[in-house]
Design a protein around this nucleic acid. Structure first.
Ligand code: FES
Ligand code: FES
Lengths: 145, 145
DNA sequence: ATAATAAAAGATAAAAATATCTTTTATTAT
DNA sequence: ATAATAAAAGATATTTTTATCTTTTATTAT
C-alpha cells in the first residue's frame, strides 16, 4: 500500500472532486463521484458518510440532492480529511511502529523519520482542499486512472 | 496504520537488532529477536524467511544457528528492506492512489506529494542498516515498547 | 549414527480492510 | 398526499493482512 489507506485515497479524490464541482455551483451524487474518481460506488458511499458526519463535506438527500461544500470547508486542510479516515498516526506515530514516538526514548530511526513525517504533516496542514479546483476544472490534473 | 505495513515495521526492527548483534559477533534466534523487538514470534519467522531469501540477512539452521549479517549487508540501505517487504509503491506510487504517478497526467497533489515521497525515498536510500549499531548497543535508542 | 537444535516450509486461523447489498429516512416534484 | 430520488444506516461478503500451528530440513554436538 502507499502512504494512505485506500479509503483515504478515495476520500481525498472525492473531496477534490466535490470541491471543484462546488465551485461550478453543482451538487454531485455518489454515483457521479464514483465514476469520476474511479472508485467502487457503495464503498465510496460509506466514506462520504464519514466525511459528512465529520463536517468535511455537506450532503442533501432527495432529488437534486448530493454532496457539496461550504466556502469555509473548501479552505480546510487536507490533514483534516486524512485524520478523519486514517487517524493521526501518520502525523505523530513512530516510523518503526513503537507504541508511541518519543524524544527521550526514541527508536533508532527517530531523527531521520521525524523530518520526513513533519514534511508530510506540514504539507497536509498547509494545503487546502479547494486549492486545486481550477487545475481540475481545466483538466490540468486528473482524479481517475 | 503508519507509513509502513506492520510486517515492514517488524522487518526494520529485526534487521536493526540482528545488525547490532552481528557487530557483537553473535547470531540471534527468532525467539530472541521477537522478544527484543516486541513482535509475535511465528509471524516474525515468516518475515525473516523473506529477508533471508532476498539476501538482506543470513541464516543458519541447527544449534548455534540463527540470524546474522555480512559486512556488506550491514551497509545496505533501509530502502532494500522496505522494498522486499512492502514493495516499491512507497517510492514511486501516486499519493492519491492513481494506478501510476505521472508527470504528464498528474493528480492534483502530484507536485506537493512528490517532494515528500522523494524525501522519504532519499532518506531510506541513504541510511544504512548498520548505521545505528552503536546507539543500539549503548541503549541510546530502543526497538521495543 | 543419534539426538538435539533451530530455521524453512506448509497449512490453518483470526482480524482488519475493502467491497457489496438491502432497508430506512429525508427531500423534492407531481 | 404520492411517487421518485438520493443519502444514511445496517447487514453481509470478500480480500488482504496479521498471526499461529505443524511438519520438514539442515546443522551441530554427543
Ligand atoms: S520513536 Fe520512532 S520515530 Fe520517534
Ligand atoms: S500523479 Fe499522484 S503523486 Fe504523481
Amino acid at each position: 500500500m502507499g502512504m494512505f489507506s485506500k479509503s483515504c485515497e478515495y476520500a481525498l479524490r472525492a473531496v477534490f472532486y466535490i470541491a471543484s464541482n462546488t465551485l461550478k455551483g453543482e451538487r454531485v451524487g455518489i454515483k457521479q463521484i464514483a465514476e469520476n474518481i474511479n472508485s467502487p460506488e457503495a464503498f465510496l458511499g460509506k466514506i462520504l458518510q464519514q466525511l459528512t458526519r465529520a463536517g468535511i463535506v455537506q450532503s442533501m438527500k432527495g432529488p437534486n440532492g448530493g454532496f457539496f461544500m461550504l466556502p469555509e470547508q473548501l479552505k480546510r486542510p487536507l490533514a483534516d480529511v486524512v485524520a478523519v479516515v486514517d487517524g493521526n498516526q501518520i502525523f505523530v506515530g513512530c516510523g518503526l511502529g513503537l507504541t508511541y514516538c518519543s524524544e527521550t526514548n526514541p527508536c533508532p530511526l527517530h531523527n531521520e523519520f521525524k523530518k520526513v513525517r513533519n514534511e508530510l504533516s506540514y504539507m497536509l496542514h498547509n494545503t487546502q482542499i479547494g486549492e486545486f479546483n481550477e487545475q481540475l476544472l481545466t483538466g490540468k490534473s486528473t482524479l481517475n486512472k
